[in-house]
Design a binder for these strands. Structure first.
Length: 676
DNA sequence: TGCCCCGAGCTTTTT
DNA sequence: GCTCGGGGCA
């Protein structure tokens, strides 16, 4: 007879002998709503956190609370929008509860997917050494596949690689079919539906075969893994018993699905977000995710944080007024105890340069009044909107850093150098091979293709390169020698690899670009970054997942701790705050931009974007718009403030018009303007 | 086949 | 103003 075996659970030894009595006085540190969210019990919860309502604080305390009440830190998963914000939060939690918080797993969806796939991916055919394609690489592969299918010759109206990527990505992220996306958002390409379908399949096949994953694949494959591999899912779900998600309004359906899978065994999910700040629809995000959360997780408790700790009441009045017009949202109304403060100002400038000069001058003035430079930010809709201002600031000697826009990692020379590292790390990576080969003198697309075909088959790929005679012979030999010396010692440090490739690549760089001194500085910077890593795969993955922002400009600046003001796209300013915020180009046609006027949904998104911009300010807020700006795209003359201000009553805003010094008298028309 | 030049078309936000 | 792709020439 079989004996019944009972189990007795041995508790895991905890790192510190934490007394079960809580060590922090939560009630004193938090307001009642925050406290309720922080001390919530098991099960799904949704925290609707208005702008500036202490969302981060709440998450930080929640992490501390969980650890404080005996949860092992390694059982907590904190998903955030950037890895930096995860690190900062864990750092702050560490200040409260001790360094055990550093054992919490924190990062972006993509970085966590990267880790899990390298660990468990084998069961769905993903080798741990896979390479991550960034946007540009992915597009290059699409172009390659497209020409292999002969689709570019066929028809002139075939979409470009970037557009194709966008369509495929949208379909993956929203869990909808390519045809559906095509009909809804790219109807002018609908006739190519069949070819695009073929292309998508071929693109996917190419990635699988070469062990390449693009950004979307990281999530798609993680979902796949969780769906088909029971044991992996059980392991992962047991590992992460408490899941916290920040910025939930900017997740898409694919991510929501991943979370649901991760939480199947325990349902301990707390998501935090603000539907009014959802600004990533172009990436497939939908604020409906946050509206639908309670349906996806039955039994959800909803918490609302409405007290704002950031801004003064005049700024909130404007913000509330802007978002009031939004069509669909969880109703909430921000309030604050900071009653006093200057009215936000709406500033009309005669042109772009007048706008720039106003900002530079005002910043100097504010500094006199005691507002430090690093408490000032200038925000804009699109990266290029700040070009003129950047020149003006340099002229006035005002130091700044710019966030958003072209990353240094995306520049051609950096990509060139990295392609060599990648070829060594993953010889199947034909995208990088292609790039590497084209750099050799005398090699064009055709020869590169032929060589690639041979390389993939060959046992000793480098011999293939050595066997070539003719014009490109010598160049290919050099390449082979360089790569082979790197491949020979697998454990070479990334920094050494960079140095070695640099020697080989420098002549090519000089040959290709007149401005090569500037570009070598970027490569030096790359070397510095590489020094921080001890493994090549990790180095490459991190560069793709968390590209260092800032370009060569930053490297040049000698003093790190010099106070600098921030220029940023509104997207990159999410979650941040400053004493003084300027929003520039608040002119109809730029903001909302002329492209976004198309659909109601897009217009709504622009409105939320504007709301995000306004709510970054603590005390001073300036909205500036140049007039008489000719817009090439629409052929229109832009002169009217953003339509989002149409319904704002005039007593919520100070209205200023700029007047050139010495011509103050010319301004007869605008009686109720303040003069400058 | 590789490379250079010219014309067309578009032009945002990011992991 | 840029990139992308096509066409023509060496």
């Amino acid at each position: 007879m079989e004996r019944e075996i009972k189990t007795y659970v041995l508790k895991r030894p905890s790192e510190e002998a934490v007394p079960r009595k809580l060590s922090i006085n939560y009630a004193a540190a938090l307001n009642p709503q925050q406290l309720a969210a922080v001390t919530a019990g098991e099960g799904p919860s949704l925290v609707i956190a208005g702008a500036g309502s202490g969302k981060t604080r709440t998450l930080v305390y929640r992490v501390a609370y969980l650890i404080d009440s005996g949860v092992d830190p390694s059982n907590i998963l904190l998903l955030t929008f950037t890895r930096k914000s995860a690190q900062e939060m864990l750092e702050r939690a560490g200040d409260l509860i001790g360094t055990s918080s550093h054992r919490v797993c924190g990062g972006t969806f993509h970085s966590v997917a990267n880790l899990l796939l390298r660990r468990y991916g084998r069961s769905i055919g993903i080798e741990p050494g896979f390479t991550i394609l960034d946007r540009g690489d992915a597009e290059d592969l699409i172009a390659l596949v497209r020409s292999q299918l002969g689709l570019n010759e066929k028809d002139k109206r075939f979409p470009r690689k970037g557009t194709i990527m966008e369509m495929i990505s949208k379909s993956e992220n929203t869990l909808r079919s390519l045809d559906e996306i095509l009909l809804e958002e790219f109807s002018h390409f609908a006739d190519h539906s069949e070819d695009l379908g073929r292309l998508q399949k071929a693109y996917q096949a190419a990635k699988r075969q070469k062990q390449l994953l693009d950004y979307d694949d990281l999530l798609v494959m993680l979902r796949q893994l969780l769906l088909v591999d029971e044991s992996a899912r059980a392991n992962i779900s047991r590992q992460y018993r408490y899941i916290l998600v920040d910025e939930y309004q900017d997740t898409n359906r694919l991510q929501a699905e991943v979370i649901r899978q991760l939480a199947t065994t325990h349902q301990n999910v707390m998501v935090v977000g603000d539907d009014s700040q959802s600004i990533y629809a172009f990436r497939g995000a939908t604020f409906k995710n946050i509206m639908d959360f309670p349906m996806l997780f039955p039994g959800t408790t909803v918490y609302k944080l409405e007290e704002n700790y950031r801004s003064t009441q005049p700024i909130l009045n404007l913000a509330n007024c802007i978002i009031e017009e939004a069509t669909e949202k969880y109703t909430k109304r921000l309030f604050t105890r900071k009653i006093d403060g200057p009215l936000p100002a709406l500033v009309e400038a005669a042109g772009e340069n007048a706008q720039s000069r106003f900002i530079a001058q005002k910043i100097l003035e504010l500094r006199e009044e005691g507002v430090p430079l690093d408490e000032v930010a200038v925000l804009f809709r699109s990266s290029f909107h700040s070009f003129d201002l950047e020149i003006e600031l340099s002229r006035k000697g005002l130091p700044f850093i710019k966030r958003g826009g072209v990353k240094f990692i995306e520049t051609a020379h950096v990509k060139d150098l990295l392609a060599h590292v990648r070829v060594v790390s993953n010889p199947l990576d034909t995208v990088s091979w292609h790039r590497v080969l084209l750099l050799v003198e005398g090699v064009g697309p055709k020869k590169a293709q032929d060589l690639l075909a041979a390389i993939v088959k060959a046992e000793r790929p480098f011999d293939v390169l050595r066997g070539v005679s003719g014009r490109s012979g010598q160049g290919l030999k050099n390449l082979a020698n360089t790569l082979e010396s790197l491949a020979g010692s697998d454990d070479r440090q990334p920094a050494e690899q960079v140095t070695h490739i640099y020697e080989y690549y420098l002549p090519i760089l000089k040959d290709q670009y007149d401005d090569y001194p500037k570009r070598t500085r970027d490569l030096d910077h790359l070397h510095t970054i590489a020094e921080g890593y001890h493994g090549v795969d990790e180095f490459l993955a991190d560069l793709a997942l968390e590209p260092p922002d800032g370009s060569a400009v930053d490297v040049e600046a000698p003093d790190r701790d010099d106070e600098r003001l921030v220029l940023s796209t509104i997207h990159s300013a999410k979650g941040l705050e400053w004493q003084c915020v300027f929003v520039i180009w608040v002119v109809d046609g730029r903001f909302p931009s002329a492209y976004s006027v198309l659909t109601d949904d897009e217009l709504e998104e622009e409105r939320r974007l504007f709301y995000v911009a306004v709510t970054r300010a603590k005390r001073h807020l300036f909205l500036t718009y140049p007039i008489n700006v000719y817009d090439k795209t629409s052929g229109m003359l832009l002169s009217k403030p953003s339509r989002f201000l149409d319904h704002v009553s005039s007593d919520l805003l100070d209205t200023l018009a700029l007047v050139e010094e010495g011509r103050e008298g010319d301004w007869g028309m605008a009686r109720d303007h303040h003069y400058y």
